[in-house]
């Protein structure tokens, strides 16, 4: 009896092992593609950032730290004095500032929107969600040009304000940081609404009623009941908005007029007119590092607050 069960469990274990092995084998092609496609280009970037830049773009295969050196410091072209690369720092700062402002604006607009959808009758929710996804049907570039059409001096918004005699001269929105922020908010808003909706849908509204029964004010209900419960949604939405904003390229290119660079544009400049590929590569890796640090901070933060709630 004992022997039989023993051999049975041996047999089971062997079968299970075999299955595990087979699963791994079946996954291998996908894993290989994923690892190569995700880390391959990054490794090339890392490699290029330690090379010398070629005369008209490209790289010379000689070790050099100039790329990394130039991220932080620049040598004055006339008197060879080393200075801080304040130009780079200002682009970094603008990117982080605009991405943070975009994220906050998305929360402010996305929160009531998601709340509205989550409080509709179950049948009509899909319809509202469907409306949110409509912008995704159109190409990003076309949507960005549509924004340009709205905010330009002769555009819809300025013409409307002038027709209403609210302003005498068009407001300069196009080609400013504000324009970039408006564009990014529009583009990334659905990425905020969807996770917010997902966590609000799970929200037990009886808790909200209970809070009201206990004489909580509206603000208090929002701050002490609703926001803590949907925090995972806010965190997820913020990550989904903040990270693509940091690396945004098309929106600042079209709406910023080539003068208000963000990180993505600064990197592109090095590979194009700047003709300094190692610097471009080093800047890309720096961007990656910023994103990773931000993610870690977010994850840490959300885990800790999650632990408290539990």
């Amino acid at each position: 009896m004992n022997d039989v069960s023993q051999s049975l469990s041996d047999y089971e274990q062997a079968a299970r092992q075999q299955e595990t092995r087979r699963n791994w084998l079946l996954c291998t092609p996908a894993l290989v593609v994923l690892v190569l496609a995700a880390s391959g280009p990054l490794l090339v970037m890392l490699f290029y950032s330690f090379l010398k830049s070629g005369n008209y773009g490209g790289v010379i295969y000689e070790f050099s730290l100039d790329g990394w050196f130039n991220v932080i410091l620049v040598r004055d072209i006339f008197d060879d004095v080393l200075r801080f690369a304040d130009a780079h720092l200002s682009v970094f700062w603008r990117s982080i500032k605009l991405s943070a402002m975009t994220t906050i604006t998305c929360v402010i607009i996305g929160f009531p929107t998601a709340y509205f959808i989550a409080t509709r009758p179950r049948r009509s929710r899909n319809f509202w969600l469907f409306l949110i996804t409509i912008p995704f049907w159109t190409n990003l570039l076309i949507r960005t040009f549509a924004i340009l059409e709205l905010i330009r001096n002769n555009g819809v918004i300025n013409n409307l304000l002038m027709d209403l005699w609210l302003i005498d001269e068009p407001i300069q929105i196009m080609y400013t940081d504000t324009a970039i922020m408006i564009g990014m908010t529009y583009v990334y808003l659905p990425l905020m609404i969807l996770p917010l909706y997902a966590s609000m849908e799970k929200l037990d509204f009886q808790l909200v009623e209970a809070a009201y029964d206990l004489y909580a004010t509206r603000i208090r209900v929002l701050r002490r009941v609703i926001i803590p419960l949907i925090k995972p949604g806010i965190v997820a939405g913020s990550i989904l908005v903040f990270i693509p904003s940091l690396g945004a390229f098309v929106t600042p290119r079209v709406l910023g007029g080539g003068k208000n660079l963000m990180l993505g544009n600064l990197i592109q400049l090095q590979f194009d007119q700047g003709q300094n590929w190692p610097l471009g590569a080093a800047l890309s890796i720096t961007l990656l590092a910023i994103v990773m640090v931000t993610l870690l901070v977010y994850v840490r933060y959300s885990q800790r607050s999650g632990g408290q709630d539990g």
Binding site: I77, A87, H88, L269, Q273, G274
Partner: peptide, 9 residues
Amino acid sequence: TAIWTELQK
């Protein structure tokens, strides 16, 4: 190119 890069940033 150096002047240009400085100007573009």
